[in-house]
Design a binder for these strands. Sequence first.
RNA 1: GCGGGUGUGGCGGAAUUGGCAGACGCACUAGACUUAGGAUCUAGCGCCUCUGGCGUGGGGGUUCGAGUCCCUCCACCCGCACCA
Length: 821
Amino acid sequence: MEKYVPSDLEPKWQKIWNDRNAYRTPENEKEKPKFYALEMFPYPSGEGLHMGHVRNYSMGDLVARFKRMNGYKVIHPMGADAFGLPAENAAIQRGVNPRKWTLSNMEKIREEQARLGLSYDWDRYVGTCTPEYYRFTQWLFLLFYERGLAYREKGAVNWCPDCQTVLANEQVEDGRCWRCDSTVEKKDLEQWFLRITEYADRLVEDLDRLPKWPEQVKTMQRNWIGRSEGAEVRFTIPELDDEEVAVFTTRPDTLFGVSYLVLAPEHPLVEKLIQGKPNEAAIRSFIRETKNQSERSRTGADVEKTGFDTGAKAKHPLTGGEVPIWVANYVLMDYGTGAVMGVPAHDERDFQFADQYGLPIRTVIRPRDGEATEGELREAYTGEGVLINSGPFDGMDSREAIGAIADRLAEEGKGKKTVSYRLRDWLISRQRYWGCPIPIVYCDSCGTVPVPKEELPVKLPEDVVFDGKRNPLTTSESFVKTRCPSCGGPARRETDTMDTFIDSSWYFLRYTDPHNTEKPFDAVKANEWMPVDHYIGGIEHAVLHLLYSRFFTKVLHDAGMVDAVEPFEHYFPLGMVLKDGAKMSKSKGNVVSPMEIIDRYGADTARLFILFAAPPDGELDWSDSGVEGSFRFLNRVWRLVHRHKDLFRDRPPARPEKGAAKDLYRLLHQTIKKVTADVGDRLQFNTAVSAIMELVNGIHSYPKEADRGTLAEAIEKTVILLAPFVPHITEELWHRLGREGSIHEQPWPRHDEKALVQSEVEIAVQINGKVRHKSVVPARADKEEVEERVMAEDKVKNLLEGKTVRKVIVVPGKLVNIVAK
RNA sequence: GCGGGUGUGGCGGAAUUGGCAGACGCACUAGACUUAGGAUCUAGCGCCUCUGGCGUGGGGGUUCGAGUCCCUCCACCCGCACCA
């Protein structure tokens, strides 16, 4: 028997599939249902693929192949998220050309992907750094601009000193840069933003349209958007000619409990309020200090609250009473109006602050079934209740009062109901070279002018200096100096490039029409495939890529470019790959190289191990002996097929009626049923593999003298069931069995329900809930008959000796429980 | 602090609807074959004081019956965290 040598087989089949263009996306196949299988495309780093990629692609490829065999027309594309900092850093450090560097990495990644035997439609490959692609990224930017969704504004933005660029809020984690972990600073800069906040409500609401998304991810997005309903309340400041200061509160029902206002140190009114006040100097230095603090030391929950009384007073909008105005570090300019009303009796933070500075505490809510706390409060009462000390609203329930007080404020022109969000607009400018140029020109006479779409792409210039000191684009005179598209006069180009998350916010749409030279994609083509039916990728993108892509899809929907309002019907988070319980990393020296594994065992073994070793959303601890086991299994299948090769000559499959053949036939159909459900519905790939292993074990122990036709049938179906998991070995075996065509074009087996029926079943006999005996009964027997048969058995009689039977519970096909004393 | 999740043999993990816990694999043990075995095959493999008892993080409950449902406690993981 010939040995199983994956290093011979795998390249052979990869070449054949490639030459035949076997996985090209079907076009004009109207009768088949569509399926869009997608895995997050990789950043083409110089390192090549890591095991996380292999896991992601193995799962996606299994699903794509499975759906094809199940009669779907499948689109399964791949590309590269090719803009980004590492290419530019390589340019700075090693003088390499970022474009060449990236293109060669892309090539390397593609070769490695090819070695995995993934069924991609390579004709649809897109690289976001190519002018053919980024031309339309620019086109989309202009679309956003036309629709009023892209704007330039000056403000305090996140600046990463290490990456030498600004960052979006989503890209700051715990006050640190998501990429390089440096502490992020604040800088006042004029930058481009996308108005994602305009879509905040829809981004929250439409999460309910995504039942197949993990709850955890939806919660993270909800938290990130941070929608909260409340009211804006405007206080007036008599000493500033009744200038108004607005606060946002979710608890307008506590308005009569306000004992002070607090402004964020950055609040624009602060300057006017402190002028000439006794502690002006102290406040100024406090503000300076606070502004210099990092995000983390400023906003941590454990950070001490500090503040100063400005000495100014505001007038309460309903009572007309005077309330002092303070400035404190715990109020953030970023959220709400940058000012809050202090209600110490009913807010923990306010309580702590008031306690610390001796500010008055007024109780205005008492618990519904209790008394208001008398005397000194120990802590704030933050629950709902009944209003007291609240003038005309006394006795009203707080839930009702929220609306009533907001309405009263509205009537008097002193406030309104409003919604506040934690989500900020998406800052997309990056002061870096290796990204998509923002297609905008600044003209002294015309101002900000968009580059006309027909002049796209605004290409990245090559005559730039990479010195690591400034944005390289600013060093290219040929790029910066241009003519105004509007008046033809001299003008200068925007030198910022776009956040690379923009590139990846629409690539799944480009795949549907990747060669379009007129527009990003054709609506008819996009609608044929969108939304993505199954999207696999790391959960680290829960509020980055996944939120941005949802935003983009909604905008493009509104622009009439695509019917879908959500890009990803089903997002499946990928579990991490670990080694010895830790994330693989060079510093720990526990990295397992995918290509070395393929060299040694082949791609099929790598894929099988990865799919088998852990449930797909759980962590997967790499195990060398586990890989050996998967390789052993494939060898076992290889030998099995070869040993019985001669059986495969036009055997008509029949449903055997008795004996070992019947049992094997039943096992086969149980397995078909289980694998179909596990891969198609449950997405439990590990149990699907174990079911096939059980089938192979069953075939192995099939008696020599039993029916050969059934054996041949079982072996053939085993190979077909394995095909989407391990495409190379199964294709080889298929041909060695003398079959025509590709195994991957075979229809997926359907189970025979009748084959599952057993004439007799073994059931457990429990006495008082403990299994004491096994009994074989006719499968069709009803409860009475089962009870009768079991009770009549000698063993059961012995066990029950000296006991009184109280009750007998029969679960047909499973067990009998005899309750006896 | 708030929200979500997880906890099952030596290890990875099964158990889909409350019904035989530990499927499948790894590791391990013994045997067969063999010049050899890190190949292959056969058998075994939760724990213990072993004709029996115990056992799904601990304790309690519901039930004829609980890994699964309820209460409570513990441990670990993830997300959010002065968001007014």
